[in-house]
């Protein structure tokens, strides 16, 4: 059980948007810090979300579950909220005595689904990132800033993006995305 998504809207009621913006309050997330090359860690990821260990900056997905590369010693595991406790137990079992840190961060983050339109163009207004599909292909995770806050996002093959940021600034992130989705100001970029 969790609180409802209670974000307000910053643009005029009924204003058209160039993309769809939706918060995903039911997304479960586990931070796992460990030696990503170790067999135990790979086993733990497999046990928790059923995917292989993601390569540098990649995300490995299996249905509603995924593992995203965050840094050389950290992956973010994505899974339904209801499965978090079981996954944490599975990680502990797989890691055994190996040095690691696994923590439920489902409530520490806010996740947005961005779709149905020029998602790359909207994000290009807020992130200092080369968002050309050649440079940031589907399945690559980019951690960067969204205007003044930290975020991470990745695209799927259909051009939709999943964006993760901190919970306390969810409203700010939502406001930024809404303002940047002005259908009258879609830039001819990225290419």
């Amino acid at each position: 059980m969790s609180e409802p998504a209670t974000l307000t809207t910053v643009t005029p009621a009924g204003a058209a948007r160039a993309i769809a913006i939706a918060r995903l309050p039911e997304q479960g997330m586990i931070m796992l810090r460990a030696d990503l090359g170790a067999a135990a860690t790979k086993k733990a990821v497999k046990a928790a979300v059923g995917t292989a260990m993601p390569a540098l900056r990649r995300i490995e997905a299996a249905g509603a579950r995924a593992a995203a590369w965050m840094s050389p010693d950290e992956v973010l595991l994505l899974l339904p909220r209801a499965e978090v406790d079981a996954a944490l137990a599975a990680i502990a079992k797989a890691m055994g005595t190996a040095h690691h840190l696994a923590a439920d961060v489902s409530d520490a983050r806010a996740v947005f689904a961005l779709s149905d339109g020029p998602v790359r163009a909207v994000l290009a207004k807020l992130c200092p990132v080369d968002l050309s599909p050649d440079r940031l292909p589907p399945g690559e995770v980019r951690r960067t800033r969204l205007a003044q806050i930290a975020c991470a996002f990745w695209f799927d093959a259909a051009g939709a993006a999943t964006l993760v940021t901190f919970r306390s600034v969810a409203q700010y992130a939502h406001d930024l995305l809404e303002l940047s989705a002005d259908p009258a100001a879609v830039p001819p970029f990225p290419r």
Binding site: L56, R57, S71, P72, P128, V129, D130, R142, R143, T144, R145
Partner: peptide, 12 residues
């Protein structure tokens, strides 16, 4: 060198 990203100074 840790993640291979060519980072803008504002990300650093």
């Amino acid at each position: 060198p840790n993640c291979g990203v060519a980072a803008d100074e504002t990300e650093l």
